[in-house]
Structures are given as structure tokens and as C-alpha cells.
Amino acid sequence: MLKVKEATRTFNNGLAGFNNISFSIKEGETVGILGTSGCGKSTLLRVLSGLDQNYDGAIEIGGVGEQPIGMIFQEPRLMPWLTVRENILFGAKDEKEKQATIQEYLNLVGLSDFDAHYPKDLSGGMAQRTAIARALIGEPDVLLLDEPFSALDAFTKMQLQDLLLKIQKNRLTTMVIVTHDIDEALYLCDRIFILGGQPGTLQAELSIDVAKPRDRGDSFLAAKKAEILELLHIEKEVV
């Protein structure tokens, strides 16, 4: 579905960004990209999304949909002058056609009662749910998420993670999630890439073969977390 071959994008005389990264992602797979700050994981997502065109290497995105890429940013990035409904329809190529399906998406993200509200009246979680609906309505082949829930409180975060799982299950969307939250990656992802160094390189790849939905307190996931912390060269928490 998504193939990246020896992609490189660096700034500041090669000190920031990422270097020589290759991987491929199957359809319907959820991949997490973990790394300490400054390792180029957000840059990688910007390159994948096409926002940053100055990279070397090759990126192939399979799929024939009207919209190959959907992106969810760290902030909701809603247009403040549009209502929730209009925001969700913002990127739709054929707004009339989507009018029929919008109710379905409003229900999916639980905002049916708020479709006429402006973003100023929404909570952080509701705004991010609107952004999720906006990204989904174009039925993208690959959904890219850049630290999507890092600005939200713990409970909202868990709710939205479950929402993503539901979406993934229903639509088999291929997802790439950049995050610095190890628990989030372990909860959502089939595979986790660890990026490290400056510029960042792909340091390790872990498969998480546990059926979803997973138990957040699973001991296998806890062991994986320790492994990831080791890989990230972060010392284990003192108990």
C-alpha cells in the first residue's frame, strides 16, 4: 500500500530530519512511528503526506481512491469560520454527493448534535473528532496521524484511540501514526518503527501480534514497552 525506498530529508546541514529510511506497509495495517523528539518522525510524515516535497528517494502510494492521503494533525486545524458540518465537508471533492453520507460520519464521531456549531464552541476532543471525520470522509487509502491525541487529556485520548480502532476495523484503513506515547503505539499498532539519532534512522521494528482491542494493562504489552524503552535508550522508570 505504501512503499518508502531510501528516503532522505535533512535540514540544518544534515543534523535534523531523517536519513535513508525504507519500509513498506500492507493494506489495512496500522504502523506506529516512535522516537524521541528531533529524530525526524514528524518530518517523515510531512514527506509522506506530500506537504514536504524536497526529499530524496522514492515513495509509492498504492490505491485508486479519489484521495490517496488523509491527514490528522496534532491540532484539529479546523476552519474557524465553518460549522462542524462544513468543516467535515471541507476537503470533499463532490460536496453534494457527500451530503448524503455526512450524517454517517457525524454519528461515527459522535457529533450529530453539534453539526451546526462553530469550532469555538467545541471542546478539544470534539474538535479533534471533527478533524478525524474530515480526514475520513474522503475515504483516503492511507491515513497519516501526526501525534493526533497528544494535546488531549488522558480520558479523551483513550476514547479517541478506541474510535480509531473502530474506524480501522470497519473500514480497514491503512494508518501511519507518529507518536511519542509508547502506550498509544502499543494499543493501536500492528507494527512499531523506532526512529533514533539526528538525523533519524530506522533503528528497530517490532511486531505486536496481539488481537485488538487490546487490554491496556496486558503484561505482554508491558514487556514490549520495556523493550521499546531500552531501544530508545531511556532508562526504566524507578519503581
Binding site: 484521495q67 471541507f90 476537503g91
Partner: peptide, 10 residues
């Protein structure tokens, strides 16, 4: 700029 990027995604 962040809003303009949303447009670029589409």
C-alpha cells in the same frame, strides 16, 4: 500556515 496545509493535503 497550518490551515493552508490542510488545503494542500486536499
Amino acid at each position: 500556515r497550518k490551515l493552508i496545509e490542510v488545503g494542500k493535503i486536499y
